[in-house]
Design a protein around this nucleic acid. Structure first.
Lengths: 213, 213
DNA sequence: AAGTGTGAAAAGTTTCACAGCG
DNA sequence: CGCTGTGAAACTTTTCACACTT
């Protein structure tokens, strides 16, 4: 949620800018596929749905990459963003809680596409039948600690029922997990050097309720 | 994404405050279940994971409800928030795109719990077998317009493949949908009086990548 | 004494606007 | 000329701190 930790430099980059970086990355990928090799802030900004000045500012946080009068090199920018987001290498991820939502996420291939690999799932009562329909091993949750340690996993997706969330998180943190994508509608308590990202589906729907009349 | 529309007063309330309102609502519900009938900003704020001053400010956007020296009436606050979020009545919702993620969301009961009812799903090629495993009708997407009109639906959950997203959104908007919960990793174009809420799962995972070392 | 409501300060973020480079 | 890079202005949101009420 927050970090006043040991990371150099990077601390004064707005969190929202980090999110936009991923969006830019996707747009750049598409441009690259189309054979573009340079792009102006105006063009990229339009594709990403932001203002050109904001895009330039966001990119500026990481250095100077553009050529005045021309624009940015597509490949160069992609490399820079991958580097910034720590995505040079395939990142292993585990998923805890292979219930309805959890199994759906395992079948969802959006993660894989973006440089993450969900290498295993864990559940309190692994469902053999369901496990066979996924092509990822579903382990008993008791094996969590060993697996994380042996495979040097840093990221976890959490889909367990509310009542178990905090307990599981404590174990994840103790085993060395540094980032948690949390689908339980609950505020998790973690040390300052662990980042939690909440995805609260009901909350997003409720939020819309405010804007419809 | 933004609105400079005809809504009175409410325009100067921060969007983030609206999100927090849903969180407060949940915490209040829990307090009520525990038999509490008043709560101080300090207590509620701790439960919601925010600072007391922020909670008071957020609540203050909607009026004065507290009693100095005592706190807020739990019931009163719940009522106020429900009213603000437009949740006095059960809100019908449709889901478009009953693929992997879509069907998982249909099985997810978090929405129902929070006052929304997913009353129908639509798909380009409704899968009969899969439909039987859900207890919600899956219609052909051609019936979209009629259904929305006949049932006065205002909210839609969008889980179609990227390539179809904008096209479907145009139809939703033309049929009177005012709020869209979008799971496709794409920036949708909608008129200013329609609100889009993006839930981009891959992006959330990428965001975590920045914070792990 | 306990706790709200809120001006005013601080912090965070976006946008403008333009100098300066290729 | 076109487009980046960026100071400075504008705007938004959070936090402080305290007067005020029960």
């Amino acid at each position: 949620m927050d970090e006043e930790s040991e990371k150099p430099e990077r601390l004064d980059i707005p969190k929202k800018a980090i999110y936009r970086l991923s969006i830019y990355h996707r747009c750049l990928q598409k441009l690259k596929d189309n054979g573009q090799d340079t792009v102006s802030s105006t063009t990229l900004a339009k594709a990403a749905g932001v203002k050109p000045a904001q895009l330039r500012r966001d990119i500026g946080y990481f250095g100077q990459f553009g050529t005045r009068g021309l624009g940015y090199p597509v490949d160069g920018l992609i490399a820079t963003i991958r580097e910034a987001l720590g995505r040079e290498h395939l990142q292993p991820v585990i998923l805890v809680g292979a219930g309805n939502l959890g199994s759906a996420l395992l079948r969802y291939h959006g993660f894989q596409k973006e440089g993450f690999e969900v290498i295993a799932a864990f559940d309190a009562r692994p469902d053999e039948a369901r496990a066979r329909t996924l092509n990822i091993p579903v382990h008993d949750v008791t094996e969590l600690e060993n697996f994380i340690f042996n495979n040097d996993v840093k990221l976890a997706i959490l889909c367990v029922p509310i009542g178990f969330a905090q307990e599981v998180v404590n174990r994840l943190v103790a085993s060395g997990i540094q980032g948690i994508l949390n689908f339980s509608p609950i505020m998790l308590e973690v040390p300052a050097d662990v980042t939690v990202n909440n995805v609260d589906l009901a909350l997003e729907l409720e939020h819309l309720g405010y804007f419809i009349r």
